[in-house]
Design a protein around this nucleic acid. Sequence first.
DNA 1: TTGTGTATATTCACTGGTTAGTATACATAC
DNA 2: GTATGTATACTAACCAGTGAATATACACAA
Lengths: 199, 199
Amino acid sequence: MPRPSEPTRARIVQAASALFYNEGIRRVSVDEVAAKAGLTKRTLYYHFKSKDDLVAAYLAARDQPNLALFRKWFAEAEGGLPAKVEAIFRNLARSARHPKWKGCGFLRTSAELANMPGHPAIRIGAAHKKKFEDWLRATFAEQRIADPLKLARQILLLLDGSFAVVLLHRDASYMETAGEAARTLIETAVATKGRKRRD
Amino acid sequence: MPRPSEPTRARIVQAASALFYNEGIRRVSVDEVAAKAGLTKRTLYYHFKSKDDLVAAYLAARDQPNLALFRKWFAEAEGGLPAKVEAIFRNLARSARHPKWKGCGFLRTSAELANMPGHPAIRIGAAHKKKFEDWLRATFAEQRIADPLKLARQILLLLDGSFAVVLLHRDASYMETAGEAARTLIETAVATKGRKRRD
DNA sequence: TTGTGTATATTCACTGGTTAGTATACATAC
DNA sequence: GTATGTATACTAACCAGTGAATATACACAA
């Protein structure tokens, strides 16, 4: 039974993900994670050196799948650039209507651990958001938009804002409002493409 | 010494505010709050029936001062509507650069308690955001903007987005980016004032 | 093929500390 | 002498992390 070790670790991360996402980091004990994974706490501590380490692994496992989903929604959408970005918000709204939805795991974790600035989990969250921003910036740069970084950050702000607002109000329609705002900002940036900045 | 009871209660809320905001709800014990307020836990439980009750009081105490601050920043700013809204973001960025700043207490609390949907603290947070949205909507309506509710919600999304992003990245310049985005959205809405919706 | 050593993987049982909430008694002011 | 307010001392549960022992799989030697 010993040898492999990788499936066990993966099972622990899976159990931790479900519990941490649904209940919150500090609400969930290491014992609960171990029980859900079907093993003892001592075994868990063989694979992870601390609870903080486990929390970091939980977020690290969410990084790539999450980004892939956003890219998929963007790629599959019909229409031009604004429509493709808006599709991300529309799909997100659909996810948010599921009763088990509880916002963005990265944001919620960094909100809960805000008193530990250098925590590995917060770094992983920041890196995740940065990857998303970088992908948007590159996409906008390809379309010869004047200030692709600024526009990417504006979209990111709307996205994370919709995570926060929808979590509070439990009203997913805010995500469609955010999508509309994103469309307006993109169209404005496109219109300014060649022109000098006014003001 | 007994009689008054109100200053005692206020002192408890003050102690709770500092601790809950800086360390997080579940991180802070009722004993710690009592110690910081200079009394025993048993006395605290005379004034509040549970920890949840105390958490709710912590947020309720933040509601009016927070809104007043936003209104003050708006009112004192020079210039037109976009400049006045942008001033809110600029002032917020200034606050966020203080090292003790840890985001929006309402958002962080509801992120931490996301597993308890009906929690009084979450309701207070939602009501707070709604009041801000209502104030913006009324302000925009006075200026004869076409869809004041939609614009108010877009600004709210940018505001809460900047709380989230700046908490993660510890880079307050995102708030100025959010302010710029708000300006763009307002100017677009103003330009659409009388006109029919295109599309 | 069979025995044996070793790194890997797992468990039981425990520690020292913390936690929300309470039973009871005492003090003060009016 | 009764409302209000405060403190001491307690419960019963929980929690992150560890010490010591054990089980398994595989490499290699006989």
